[in-house]
Amino acid sequence: MAKTLTQEFVKGLWDEIPPFRLVLGLCPTLAVTKTVENGIGMGLATTFVLVFSNILVSALRKIIPSKVRIACFIIVIATFVTVVELLMQAFTYPLFLKLGIFIPLIVVNCIVLGRAEAFASKNSVLASTADGLGIGVGFTLALGALGGVREILGNGTFLGKTVFGPAFQPFTFMVEAPGAFVCLGLMLCLMNLVGKK
């Protein structure tokens, strides 16, 4: 367990990048990645929750009785999710309208609970912060990449700006639900091809 903080951080970016390697948290991955903006917004909201819940769970890990640990984790996570929800309503209302129900659903995102249970409850505060940040950034990048591919192909735009000329015929299949599955599958396949030793 003698990993450095950098290693804890970096592992979230490739070795354990949530949607592609752990294949966790697929609900927001598939549902909100219609555009880059949505994907990154969702990723950042999740990162916030991950980092703070990891810090608090790790700080309280010696106090929390093991029999009620899941209940305690959920209270911590739900608190931070509500904080994010309120802050998003106050400062980024249009994005909040687009992400809608998926913000409160971060509570049941298995990445967050998984990190609390598998990592933060056994490691120091600093290591848990690095872990939460790494996994969160990895999740954000993954959602951004997926959103990017879907937005470019399905809409012909990137971050709302037109990429191709007016002759481009949007491949609308990509912005619909089945397109999300196909796109995720292809990206998983690509990750495995590249990562193969």
Partner: peptide
């Protein structure tokens, strides 16, 4: 268990 859960819940309630 009761004390920890109570304290944690009231803390998060206050924060929210």
């Amino acid at each position: 268990m009761v004390v920890v859960l109570t304290v944690l819940s009231s803390f998060s309630g206050g924060l929210l």
